[in-house]
């Protein structure tokens, strides 16, 4: 697909609804502004200076009139506000059975990691009809992943994960691009967004060269960077076990309880002093200068894959 349709096609149900919302709102806008344009033109002609006309008018103010033209457009706008806000809130309700794809942005490229370990740069293949969740991290500045066909964008902020989810329905080749100004080659930071039939996607996954799945790659990192030295039952160091950690509530020092989500795992690797699991010594060093966001995503995938099973079964 080429030209404008690669940008403007409605690829998802969400995109269609955003367009419907926008177009209905444009109609409202038009109906509110048209009287102003028409009346100004009519008045300028009819009451231009020197032209005879009936100019008797009783008053120079009318509180009810003024209140009504202040309140009625506002009330109409509120109706649209409710619609738009519900649509927006949907973006925050992540589907449970989604395909999770990791995204790392850096000046000036997009890197995507599929759960099976397939990696692509500036190109994202997704299956049609299946919910996809993108977990996005930035290696340097703020970027913004923008897929116009989905009517979606989300800033990718260094220091945290942001997420975006969608269900693309219409197979085809579309655009993805960076919307937040990120430096010299900002306008070249983009590529193709490929929506494929499920079968084609499965085929594509097979044909793409893979070292190992993300979690397995993470397991390798887990050993090479010495994480296993402390976070294993046999270790002499008193460090919390990571089995079944993901999704569990963790009591942390200071009495708070937090859920061990991706962000928690990421922060524990890069900013280990921020949230110490209660009852453990503060001995974990930071890996901020050692690991890039791509490696961290792999480690997170590995730790997420750890079920609450005895340690040695996995060795």
């Amino acid at each position: 697909m080429d030209g404008l349709s690669a940008w403007a096609s409605e690829i998802s149900a969400h995109a269609a609804e955003v367009d419907l919302l926008a177009m209905s709102f444009f109609l409202l806008v038009l109906s509110l502004s048209a009287p102003v344009f028409i009346l100004m033109a009519v008045f300028a002609v009819r009451y231009r200076r020197g032209k005879p006309a009936d100019r008797v008018h009783p008053i120079d103010r009318n509180v009810w009139l003024e209140v009504s033209w202040a309140i009625i457009p506002f009330a109409l706008a509120i109706a649209f506000y409710i619609w738009a806000t519900r649509l927006y809130a949907n973006l925050y309700e992540l589907p449970a059975d989604a395909l999770e794809i990791g995204v790392v942005a850096k000046q000036w490229m997009w890197k995507f990691q599929h759960p099976g370990g397939q990696r692509e740069i500036d190109e994202l293949h997704v299956p049609a009809g299946q919910p996809v969740v993108l977990t996005m991290a930035s290696q340097d500045v703020i970027h913004s992943l923008y897929i116009p066909g989905l009517r979606l964008k989300r800033d990718v902020v260094p220091g945290r994960y942001t997420r975006m989810w969608f269900t693309a329905d219409k197979p085809g080749v579309y655009r993805l691009t960076c919307a937040e100004f990120c430096g010299a080659d900002h306008s070249m930071m983009g590529g193709r967004f490929v929506v494929m039939q499920q079968a084609d996607y499965a085929l594509w996954l097979e044909q793409t060269e893979v070292d190992a799945s993300l979690a397995v790659q993470g397991a390798v990192l887990f050993r090479t960077y010495g994480c296993s030295g402390c976070h294993s039952p046999g270790a002499t160091v008193h460090a919390p076990s990571l089995d079944g950690l993901y999704g569990r509530p963790v009591p942390i020092e200071g009495g708070q309880i937090v859920t061990a989500d991706e962000q928690y795992i990421r922060d524990s690797i890069l900013l280990p002093r921020q949230h110490i699991a209660a009852g453990y010594p503060r001995i974990m060093p930071t890996f901020a200068n050692v690991l890039g966001e791509e490696e961290v995503l792999k480690l997170v995938a590995y730790i997420k894959s750890l079920r609450a099973a005895p340690w040695k079964d996995r060795q």
Partner: peptide, 8 residues
């Protein structure tokens, strides 16, 4: 959300 916002 407490830790930087996974729901974002």
């Amino acid at each position: 959300p407490a830790l930087g916002g996974m729901t974002n």
